[in-house]
Write a protein that binds this DNA or RNA. Structure first.
Lengths: 197, 197
DNA sequence: CGCCGAGTTGAACTGAATCAAGAAACGTGG
DNA sequence: CCACGTTTCTTGATTCAGTTCAACTCGGCG
């Protein structure tokens, strides 16, 4: 079976020979998770970065009223982890769950260490990943502070057109910080606007 | 004049001798900014990380309706920068402005490079800074998604009691994503609750 | 065929925004 | 140190975006 995931990702991002990659990859467990299975639950300690080879994950919290709030979606070739838990060694506030049957590479601290040793500019790459994450989070905060439901939704469409089609509307609403009913109405409004034009 | 800022910060965080620090510090410009002066404006390219030795800065955006939204406050011994602009070389969406007369160390790319060279675990330190930033941003998103005005305010008080006393309420409201009027009412409510107890 | 979860729609409600007007605090110059 | 103007905070009345709750529709799947 050809693994199109992490290996391809590494070879296409780093200047490193195939053989070496292969030996590295072996020390990285791959997990098949079915829809609705969890990779992390609240209060657990997050020990991995999850690299999605196939499928789709979501990271979310549950507030004290029992409502879910989606922090992120992770489709193919994305990394997810709870950095707060993993890096600072705290119990996680989040759940990470498969929204589709998925194939996930489980990257642990040792593996990162190996990559750092073997791949010269892996540190830089990792740094870029962190900066990218910060950028995404900051933009989202700015959006939550400044934009109404409709604008948030439009922004979401523009940024994640692929995800839009793969997850139920309820979850997009949760990501946007509005109710499913509100999102439904927003979409209706937009449809009418577009029709008029 | 004794600089209590960056030097102290470095010596207390890293195992490095005084002399070396001193020579490093010299290559880092220090700027005195007066209240309401800007260190960064929208559309400029952010070239520095600002380390606040004395005073208080804020980072904010202005939306298309002309409203300000505060992304962060930076009191003594904090770093601020627009990583999106600095790292990805994009025009900034944000303003960084002094809320008090401040002393700010202007850390540029060269200086970071020097620190990386001279200080063995500086990379780790920097990494920790990034993770800390991510943690803070993620928690804030979670709060914006899940909490009403009152809870956000309570959380703010608990997290930044020092800042609470130094900035006008208007700005705290802006940070929390509510209007000054709403914050005023929230505080009134809380005062009444506490009185009843 | 019938069920079930996802999405839609409606009506009432609510937390927060808006607009407007005072009151309090603040600092700046005389 | 007071007087004055400016900013900040408060309070009230009204409006509004989004929530809540409930009923109904639709498409898929066993």
């Amino acid at each position: 079976m050809i693994r199109t995931g992490l290996k391809t990702f590494l070879t296409s991002n780093f200047d490193i020979d195939e053989a070496e990659i292969l030996s590295l990859i072996e020390s990285c467990t791959v997990k098949e998770v079915r829809k609705n299975q969890f990779l992390l639950r609240e209060n657990e300690h997050c020990k991995h970065t999850f690299f999605v080879e196939k499928g789709l994950l979501r990271q979310y919290s549950i507030d004290n009223k029992g409502k879910e709030h989606i922090l992120s979606f992770a489709p193919e070739n994305w990394f997810v982890t709870d950095r707060e838990s993993a890096y600072f060694n705290q119990p996680s506030k989040y759940y990470i769950e498969a929204l589709e049957d998925s194939t996930v590479a489980m990257i642990d601290e040792d593996f990162i260490q190996m990559l750092s040793d073997k791949i010269p500019n892996f540190t830089h790459f990792n740094n870029r990943l962190l900066h990218n994450h910060i950028r995404q989070l900051q933009n989202r905060i700015n959006l939550l502070l400044s934009a109404v439901a409709e604008d948030r939704y439009l922004q979401f469409i523009a940024t994640y057109p692929d995800i839009l089609l793969r997850v139920p509307q309820t979850m997009i609403a949760s990501y946007l910080g509005i109710t499913p009913e509100s999102l439904s109405r927003v979409r209706k409004e937009l449809a009418q606007k577009n029709f008029k034009k």
